[in-house]
Design a binder for these strands. Structure first.
Length: 420
DNA sequence: TCTGGGGTCCTAGGACCC
DNA sequence: TCTGGGGTCCTAGGACCC
């Protein structure tokens, strides 16, 4: 999907068309998506918002806080539609997926064009389709489709003029290949491997020796040999994390306890929505990477007595784990709770071996936890919570989202109103 | 003044086993 | 003076992705 977050905003807000638009990260920190007009202004991904804020006045730049409820729902609609077209379908990220197509090259091209049209018509976001024999090459074809408007948003590598393709491969830098990041990119260039064609023609054994089996696979994929397996289903994944930057620094132990309690409950409720249980709890916090002077990045792990997603237990353990790690006088700007070692079933209580020495009754705790979960499922996340998470007024450090749009597709109160 | 979040995979190295 | 071999499991850290 092209400029996906911006496209989602544009689908509902006509005033955003034909002008520079950016979508910001959490806390309105930095740029995570840009319209073509914003790219043309020279705004980079990851650029801090405060550095480009003046463009709002001088260049009619529109700004939106990220609205993941909207993007997630729009993505799900696109993915559902896409699933109808392929022999298989793997959702790779919120704005990207791989599908398997069969038939002649011309049939494949026609299907790709239909997909674009259907998504544009029924959902209203622009996409490009790249077709080839491996995932790495399909991503490359998609890249070509995006950068050559003449192709109409579809690029079937095998139908391209081979000389044109050759020119592209010897021109496009190796760092544009899927799987080549900053570090490997710099190293490759220092070895004289500067373009996609260079990497395609590199010695796979040398690449494995100097880098890893991962980059070796990329070389094979560039040569048309499939090496990258299916993307795993979300439900099989290994961890659930809730980490956030704060809008204002956290300095006191009390505030950090609020953070840990609320984040642990958030992580626990994600686990509940996936029907899973954790055996390992990790807490983290950190000072700003950009601040002068001393830094502090406390982190601790707690092995859980048995697979659990109990918000009371996790909240208590997270607070306790972080309690002695904070250094006095430091400005903490982020914190996180990570749950891992996931399993599909809760553990049995195992006699005294794993006794937490918890005073209150286990059954009662279980009941409170499930009541809290039921109520928030029915009346929304803000309706109830344990301790600080139950307060109507959010703490001062809570995320900043000053330019948020409506949740057009998931909240009755926020539907788009149309007058005709 | 103000700089995101949530993941995956691989590798090396340590602890431990017989 | 001379001190094995083959393995598993776990974790931390690095690199990458969007």
């Amino acid at each position: 999907m092209n400029n996906f977050y911006v496209s989602c905003e544009r689908a509902f807000d006509y005033s955003l068309r034909n002008r520079p638009v950016v979508v910001l990260s959490n806390n309105d920190g930095c740029v995570v998506a840009r319209s073509q007009e914003a790219k043309d202004l020279g705004i980079a991904t990851g650029e801090p918002f405060f550095k480009i804020q003046r463009l709002m006045d001088s260049h009619n730049l529109a700004v939106r806080s990220s609205n993941y409820e909207l993007y997630g729902d729009m993505s799900a609609r696109v993915m559902e539609l896409l699933g109808r077209y392929g022999t298989w379908h793997e959702v790779y990220s919120i704005d990207e997926s791989f599908i398997g197509l069969e038939g002649s090259l011309e049939q494949v091209r026609s299907t790709a064009a239909q997909i674009r049209k259907a998504i544009d018509k029924t959902i209203g976001v622009p996409v490009c389709v790249g077709v080839s024999t491996t995932k790495t090459l399909a991503k490359l074809a998609n890249h070509i489709a995006k950068h050559n408007p003449g192709l109409g948003g579809v690029c079937v590598q095998q139908l391209m003029d081979q000389q044109v393709l050759g020119n592209i491969l010897t021109r496009v830098p190796v760092t544009d290949v899927w799987g080549v990041g900053r570090k490997s990119g710099a190293k490759l260039i220092s070895m004289g491997i500067e373009t996609i064609a260079d990497l395609r023609d590199a010695d796979p054994l040398l690449i494995r020796k100097k880098f890893s089996v991962v980059l070796q696979r990329t070389v094979f994929e560039l040569n048309g040999q499939r090496c990258i397996g299916p993307v795993e289903e979300r439900a099989d994944r290994g961890q659930v994390m809730f980490t956030r930057s704060f809008s204002t620094p956290v300095r006191t132990r009390e505030a950090m306890e609020e953070v840990m309690s609320i984040y642990a409950q958030k992580a626990a409720s994600r686990l509940a929505s996936e029907g899973r249980y954790a055996t390992l709890l990790t807490v983290t916090a950190g000072t700003s990477r950009f601040a002068q002077g001393e830094s502090s990045f406390p982190s601790a792990q707690v092995r859980l007595p048995r697979p659990t997603r109990d918000p009371i237990l996790l909240s208590k353990l997270a607070i306790a784990a972080m309690a002695d790690l904070m250094q006095p006088g430091m400005d903490y700007v982020r914190g996180g709770v990570i749950l891992s070692g996931l399993s599909d079933s809760p553990g049995e209580k195992q006699l005294d071996l794993f006794d937490l020495g918890d005073e209150h009754d286990e059954e009662e705790q279980k009941n409170v936890s499930s009541v809290v979960q039921d109520i928030s499922a029915r009346f929304g996340a803000k309706s109830i919570g344990l301790g600080p998470a139950g307060m109507a007024q959010s703490p001062a450090w809570t995320m900043k989202r000053e330019h948020i749009s409506q949740r057009y597709t998931t909240e009755w109160d926020e539907l788009l109103e149309v007058r005709a």
